[in-house]
């Protein structure tokens, strides 16, 4: 199986849950964003998975996902070298 490598950047609360600000992920060539997010959920364990994925194993709608600088839906196909950013919600105060 051919693999592609993408880089994931975490912002705000999800960075703490992931324990790092970024990491590289190898995923099957042609995988979409949803597939990569699910594989990340398995990789980091339950505490991270519940922040990233809901009970139906879908990416949480309260997180914002970007591929490069473009807002992306979980169905977005990925390609080798893509940079994914996950923004957890934040507010004023």
């Amino acid at each position: 199986m051919r693999l592609m490598r993408v880089t994931v950047y975490y912002m705000a609360q999800i960075k703490r849950a992931a324990g790092c600000s970024s990491e590289q992920i190898d995923a099957p060539d042609g995988a979409d964003l949803r597939g990569v997010l699910r594989s990340m959920g398995e990789r980091h364990g339950d505490a991270f998975r519940v922040v990233l994925l809901d009970d139906a194993n879908e990416p949480r709608k309260s997180l914002l996902y970007f591929v490069g600088d473009e807002h992306a839906d979980p169905s977005r196909p990925l390609k080798d070298g893509d940079a994914i950013t996950i923004l957890a919600p934040m507010a004023g105060g």
């Binding site: 609360q13 922040v51 709608k61 309260s62 919600p89 934040m90 507010a91 004023g92 105060g93």
Partner: peptide
């Protein structure tokens, strides 16, 4: 944010300089 994020808390870590 179609709905209020369930996990968000009113108090959170931050520096005044960020605010």
């Amino acid at each position: 944010y179609p709905t209020e994020p369930a996990a968000w808390k009113r108090q959170f870590p931050v520096f005044g300089a960020v605010a």
